[in-house]
Simulated assay, not measured.
Amino acid sequence: MAKDRIDLHLSLPKIEVNGDYDINGNVLLFPIQSHGNFWALFGDVEAIARIQGVEEVRDGIRYMRIARLLIDFSLGRVRFRIMDHLNGNNVIGQAMNQFLNQNAKEIIEEMRPAASASIAKHFKEFLNTAFSKLPMKIWMHDT
């Protein structure tokens, strides 16, 4: 089976993420419990994806299956907003907002390996679904 490689370099001006969060744990010796809404803005995103594919032939037609997908990224800007719904006056949410935004670069750098692996896992599944239905001759020069 032939191996194919695709390198992608992406520049995205802005990614916005909205969702819900739920935290239940301890910080130092203090119990922390909170849940609510989460918003994040990631600006000036630079990403590199390296796709290693393996050719598969089904009914005489060539397809590609992704064997490995590696993703790395850097962020130019980061902004977070947490809205705590459990505790009155949003005190925990305000404290988390301040902490997250003051330490955003360090937090992202610490989370980057896990985030890269998670993004790669989801995109690998998505791309394999697409590539399994799209013969290589449609999107790649046949050699």
Rank of each mutant, 00 (worst) to 15 (best):
I82P: 02
L127R: 04
K14Q: 15
R79M: 09
E110Q: 02
L70N: 05
F99A: 07
A49L: 11
D84W: 11
R68H: 02
A114G: 06
I82R: 00
N103C: 00
Y21K: 08
M1A: 13
L75A: 07
N89F: 11
V57E: 07
G19N: 06
T129E: 13
M111S: 15
H141S: 11
A40R: 01
Q98E: 13
L41Q: 09
V17A: 12
V17E: 14
R81V: 04
L12G: 07
E125M: 05
I48E: 14
E16D: 14
T129P: 00
R77E: 14
P31Y: 13
H85Q: 14
I51S: 00
K121G: 03
M1C: 12
A2Q: 10
V91H: 12
I138N: 07
M64I: 10
I6L: 09
M1W: 04
Y63D: 03
W139V: 13
R65T: 04
K3L: 04
A104L: 01
V78N: 05
L12K: 14
D44W: 01
P13W: 10
D142G: 05
E16V: 12
W39Y: 15
N97R: 05
A120Q: 01
I66A: 03
I92P: 01
A130H: 04
M1H: 07
A95K: 12
T143R: 12
I108E: 08
G93S: 09
N97Q: 06
G43W: 08
K124Q: 15
I6E: 03
L70W: 04
I6N: 10
E109C: 04
S11Q: 13
N24Y: 03
I66N: 04
A115N: 10
F73C: 04
V78L: 09
G93H: 03
I61L: 00
E106Y: 04
Q102C: 06
G60F: 10
G88Y: 05
I119P: 01
F30V: 14
I138K: 09
G88L: 13
I92M: 05
A114I: 10
F42M: 09
G76S: 10
A47L: 07
L12H: 11
F42K: 05
L86K: 14
M64S: 12
G19Y: 06
I6H: 06
S11E: 15
F99T: 14
P31F: 13
S74G: 12
V57D: 05
M96C: 08
M96G: 02
I82V: 15
L41A: 09
K121S: 12
L70Q: 02
L86S: 11
Q52S: 02
N26L: 10
I66S: 03
V54F: 05
H9E: 12
I108W: 01
V78W: 00
K124W: 06
S116M: 00
A120K: 01
D20T: 10
K137R: 06
